[in-house]
């Protein structure tokens, strides 16, 4: 049971870490200063949530493990984040599309996780939900601004949503670990969140005068991340993220 719980926490933590890491790549590269600061803030919130989760996993596992063990000393196959989050940042519209899909998911997910039978996860959800509410407002506003903007921004926003859409389905497809956690009342039933998620996204897309991605009708989606089968991008992220600890293990500031 503890093993499954650790595995589950790892999936949640990896989602937040990889998303936070990708967003941190915008630091110093944002299209305008305010966006640069916003993306760095959101990156920090995500990395903060990941820390709380890794810390919890380390406490359960014991054995000298710390919050740093998981991000720095695991390899690609051991990471259980959804594929959506490891995709490259692309242009600004690509990042915003990824944020909209994930922030909306996080909003409903944390709202449900607040009722987890696991008190620690419920506390982390309570804390994170407050932050995700800002993130969602930021990404939704930008989808509308770009979608209902110039011809070029509209086209880029439309393409970005279409390209990321096929990665969003994985968020709602429970893995065996998730099923076990749902069964125990620890995890919310993510499958049941899909309708409300899709409705919320549809409202934002409509306000942005964009059209719903066609691939939505196929129902097929990219998956593998939750099982540790990743795109080639994750390896490059880890090379960057883990370099210092792998070169000088357990070094400290």
């Amino acid at each position: 049971m503890n093993n499954s719980l650790v595995e589950y926490i790892m999936h949640l933590a990896d989602n937040s870490l990889i998303h936070g890491h990708r967003l941190s790549e915008w630091c110093g590269h944002g299209p305008i200063l305010e966006v640069d600061i916003a993306l760095s803030n959101i990156a920090l919130d995500n990395i903060g949530a990941a820390r709380s989760l890794y810390e919890y996993a380390a406490e359960i596992e014991g054995n000298g493990k710390t919050e740093d063990t998981y991000p720095y000393f695991r390899d690609v196959r051991q990471f259980k984040n959804s594929l959506l989050l490891e995709l490259p940042n692309g242009n600004f519209a690509d990042t915003i599309a990824k944020c909209l899909l994930f922030d909306t998911y996080q909003f409903y997910f944390y709202t449900a996780l607040k009722n987890s039978s696991d008190n620690r996860l419920a506390a982390i959800a309570e804390k994170s939900l407050k932050e995700v509410t800002y993130h969602l407002r930021f990404s939704s506003e930008w989808v509308v601004r770009l979608g209902d903007g110039t011809d070029e921004s509209k086209q880029k926003m439309q393409n970005a949503i279409a390209e990321h859409w096929e990665y969003a389905g994985e968020l709602f497809a429970p893995s065996n670990i998730e099923l076990e956690m749902i069964e125990q009342g620890i995890a919310p039933n993510i499958d049941a969140l899909k309708d409300v998620w899709q409705q919320k996204i549809a409202e934002t897309i409509e306000e942005a005068t964009l059209s719903f991605p066609l691939s939505n009708e196929k129902g097929w989606f990219q998956s593998g991340g939750k099982k540790g089968i990743h795109t080639e991008y994750l390896g490059f992220i880890l090379a960057d993220l883990q370099y210092m600890q792998k070169t000088y293990p357990n070094s400290e500031w």
């Binding site: 600061i37 916003a38 803030n41 930021f138």
Partner: peptide
């Protein structure tokens, strides 16, 4: 408001 996100996580500009 200039930006909802400011110099630290707790501030807006």
């Amino acid at each position: 408001v200039i930006s909802e996100f400011g110099s630290t996580a707790c501030k807006s500009l």
